[in-house]
Design a protein around this nucleic acid. Structure first.
Lengths: 340, 340
DNA sequence: CTGAAAGCGCTAACAG
DNA sequence: CTGTTAGCGCTTTCAG
């Protein structure tokens, strides 16, 4: 009982019309007489016909599949992005192919290679390592939108937060809360160091310098961007340093690791040390203490990213290379605010 | 400059061989003389040829794409599962299509419909609402593997933890720590109530009854399975109840919400109340207090799920309907253990 | 408004 | 070992 699935031809035969007519009905392409239409629809139902999207794809050159490439969906931030993209894609009749890059250049390049295979109509790419030249080799007709910080010259639309502005707001907030000595955690010599890493770090440094206060000092603490690495890095650091007034972490999960390290050392947050994250992952508002962080409108990001892809497909190609998505500073308990 | 991508035919012409030979080289199908092979490879490189996977898919009926369907990848547990599946899929030359169901029956059924469209070779399905009959309507040739608890009779392999065993271990652990009154949070009347919800709840009830102690009492607290709902439900409950000895939450994120609610009420964990989660999401070991939970070997789950799909494709179909994946009880600070 | 037919790029008989 | 060729299921041009 291994019945081959019904094809359009089967439907045509059964309905006593031509394949062309079935196609017209399925895609309600041109006007079809109501009688014929009903005949065809009945045949479709009787045979349980479903269009073969692969055949459609071969014929039309479009698959209605978009790829989402991120370092790792198990990271809450990327999981939330993936959810937003998936939701938006579905609303536009697209399906999402999930690609992980582990923040490795080679895997990021492999993602671009996918284009050659005609599988996808576009990519929403949270690239970390990719250089401008990698993008430039692509045929101009391949829709790519970069999300999160990426260096200039990519000649592709790039959706991101106004990092400098956000970093500045955060630093000023900490300064107002009395912080004068800062530890910047998660900056250098890790996989995430290229795009977002460097840019957030640069933003913070600019913000700190912008304070123009001679009392203000800061130090860098290299660290990977995971819970574990955030924890390890700060624990290690605390063995031979006294706590700063504030620990600025490059993302939320690292901050959670850092807070854990502080707790183990008997240092209270925010009483002894202020701590901040970045990304506003869901957990950051429910943990104890809740975490001060920078939040990006992820749904809006996804909306615009998908819209770009669709627009590019439709032939429009006049996009600003860089476009800001709204962000906000969320002041919570880890810097003396309230849970929200 | 809108050059059409090179086809296999272009390569054949350039190399001065037939398409057949190119195909043989690309798929190293049969033996090809070294000289010819080199000629072909050069032509491929010169033209930048990449096989069109859609055409391959149409011809072979296989796309090497598998779907992963989960309620919501923004939930840490599903994000971690997605990561594990993605990793395993890549290792087997497969790509992953990501589908979200929001734990709604209708969307779960839509996922199954995807099969009709010939897009995917199989589905790894974390179904929550789907009933056995939904699965039964499928052609027998459609590889589906269910992950997480699903009711019986699905006639598809189902990979899951030994829920009863895990629940029993957890309950006994709490009992040993002195808990006599229990609150079971997250059980009834929510989207997650069907599959996993009911099964965990049943496991806990069985475990509590199994204690055989007349002192033991318990109560149900309905709650959604999110941070927010976990928080709201317990906060509300605490307004007119005195705290139990232990709050057993159906998953980790709900537990995090619950702990937050306890903290707001000035109730200490684990000093005043013990709290447990389920899933061993990454954050659960770094939060303060770290969370006692049930951990499933997600990488192993993904490995077996992909292996099933591959095996089914290869024609083997003798799978146990239900198969346990290793799990463990992780005793952490929220029940008086250590961080790990 | 509908039919006939070409062909998207590839794989795999079938011949040689 | 390699060439010829027939489709996979669909969309769409061209006629009618």
């Amino acid at each position: 009982m291994n019945r081959r699935p019904a094809t359009m031809n089967d439907v045509a035969k059964r309905a006593g019309v031509s394949q062309r007519t079935v196609s017209n009905v399925v895609n309600n392409h041109v006007y079809v007489s109501e009688k014929t239409r009903q005949k065809v629809l009945r045949a479709i139902k009787e045979l349980g016909y479903r269009p073969n999207v692969i055949a459609q794809g071969l014929r039309t050159g479009q698959t209605k599949i978009i790829a989402l490439a991120v370092p790792n969906v198990a990271w809450p931030y990327y999981g939330e992005i993936a959810h937003a993209v998936q939701t938006e894609a579905r609303a536009n009749g697209l399906t999402v192919l999930m690609l992980e890059t582990d923040a490795e250049l080679e895997k990021e390049q492999q993602v671009l290679n996918l284009f050659g295979s005609n599988l996808i109509d576009g990519i929403i790419f949270s690239a970390v390592r990719l250089r401008a030249e990698d993008l430039r080799d692509l045929p101009a007709s391949t829709p790519v939108v970069l999300i999160g910080h990426h260096q200039a010259g990519a000649s592709r639309p790039n959706l991101l937060a106004d990092v400098n502005r956000a970093a500045q707001d955060l630093v000023e907030h900490l300064y107002q809360r009395g912080a004068r000595s800062f530890l910047l955690q998660g900056s250098t010599s890790t996989p995430m160091t290229s795009g977002p890493g460097l840019s957030r770090q640069a933003g913070f440094v600019a913000g700190l310098e912008g304070l123009g206060s001679p009392e203000v000092t800061w130090e860098m603490l290299p660290s990977g961007w995971t819970y574990r690495e955030g924890f390890d890095a700060l624990r290690e650091w605390l063995t031979d340093h006294r706590p700063p007034d504030a620990v600025i972490c490059m993302n939320d999960i690292m901050a959670i690791g850092a807070i854990r390290a502080l707790a183990d050392a008997g240092i209270r947050v925010p009483d002894d040390v202020l701590v901040t994250g970045w990304d506003n992952t869901r957990e950051s508002s429910f943990m104890v203490p809740s975490l001060t962080t920078i939040g990006l409108d992820k749904a809006e990001l996804a909306r615009r990213a998908v819209a770009y892809l669709l627009a590019e497909k439709a032939g429009k190609r006049n996009f600003p290379e860089k476009e800001f998505v709204p962000h906000e500073l969320l002041v919570r308990e880890s810097t003396g605010g309230q849970q929200d």
